[in-house]
Design a protein around this nucleic acid. Sequence first.
DNA 1: AGCGTCAAATTTGTATACATTACCGTCGAA
DNA 2: TTCGACGGTAATGTATACAAATTTGACGCT
Lengths: 214, 214
Amino acid sequence: MSRASDAAYALIRSQIGGGTLAPGAPLREEELATLCGVSRTPVREALRRLEAEMVVRRTDGGRVYVADWAGDDIDEMFALRGLLEGHAAARAATRIASGALLEMRAINATLEAAVRHAGAPDVTGFLAANRAFHAAIVEAAASPRLAAMLARLIEQPVVQRTARNYDRAQLERSAAEHGELLAAFARGDADWAEAVMTAHIRRAYHAFTERNGG
Amino acid sequence: MSRASDAAYALIRSQIGGGTLAPGAPLREEELATLCGVSRTPVREALRRLEAEMVVRRTDGGRVYVADWAGDDIDEMFALRGLLEGHAAARAATRIASGALLEMRAINATLEAAVRHAGAPDVTGFLAANRAFHAAIVEAAASPRLAAMLARLIEQPVVQRTARNYDRAQLERSAAEHGELLAAFARGDADWAEAVMTAHIRRAYHAFTERNGG
DNA sequence: AGCGTCAAATTTGTATACATTACCGTCGAA
DNA sequence: TTCGACGGTAATGTATACAAATTTGACGCT
């Protein structure tokens, strides 16, 4: 896509993710335009994209606000993630190429290393590897529509807060579940992969709600 | 949303749905602008929306073409529809209000009347009632994200071609399955509702592929 | 003859000016 | 005092002009 439009999209999204733009805050096009150093036009396109992703919401008139997904929204997101990522895992199990499987093993080795990092676990490293791992599954599922839906569903702030709530034992359990997914993939067992992934997401859900007053 | 932008969106979408704009056809902004009687700006916004819905696709450069979803795409769409509509039915079973349930019974009565129409079945009437019925389920599911996903997934051309492939017996079976869904809703049985809906979509899938060379 | 390169033309991306619409405060009347 | 209407203000919606980029065609070279 275009340069300015993409830059505006990335910046606004990161500001929302980083908390600089708080949930419920109004977003005025002109203000964002000066913030991004571009004109209103690309800002408008960025807002349209964010609206489609439900990162922002707009009122009956055109006013745009930062979406304050909380409570039921979180429940929805995790329920749909479980459904769709489980489906993705099932598809991936019967389609993944051996090369991609090797790559995923390497990714999970990195993840395990981050978990067992000397002193405290390397949460940032964990997050990067975790993200790459899940992305690889979606890639192997070979379903553009599914990929698009999951991209809109997985809010990184939620994933990050979830992981930062994990203690070392939970991080290790995540790594172990990833290992089990790899075993299911190696055997082409779709049902197994789906079950493990569903449980994986479900556990993340409870970890998230326990410490965030869901 | 805005007047002109909405009009452009509706017109372009209907032209694609109606076949006037064939799959693979290039879409030039200026041409569409004159066609819709508006400027390029609202056309651009309409194209962004259609892109998010995967009704059109755009190349590395900004060129936009009518998406030619066929073959694997159809499989994907039905698989995801089964998953998500099944989930919607499960949620609806435990949440639907008695008033909404009554309304759905009325809708299905209309649908049955269309099926048993004197002479040939009234397929247009069937489609209208069918659409209203499924929309009511999504509404009762009370999940905005789920609703947004399904809206992007259910291409009316596909639904229409599916229904037009049905013979009278299949139309009657659809009506019966709807009736079973209503029974599941009345008892608040989420598992039952989900199973019936999944089967319902699956049958539609096979009906579609049988006569469309899937 | 085929291929690479360069240039012209067409198309999209961006910016800005203008029109329109929604919001909000104020004023007036019940 | 509260409700409703009205007008000012500020935001979004639209149109157009200009800049950037990509495609396409032709020309020259191998």
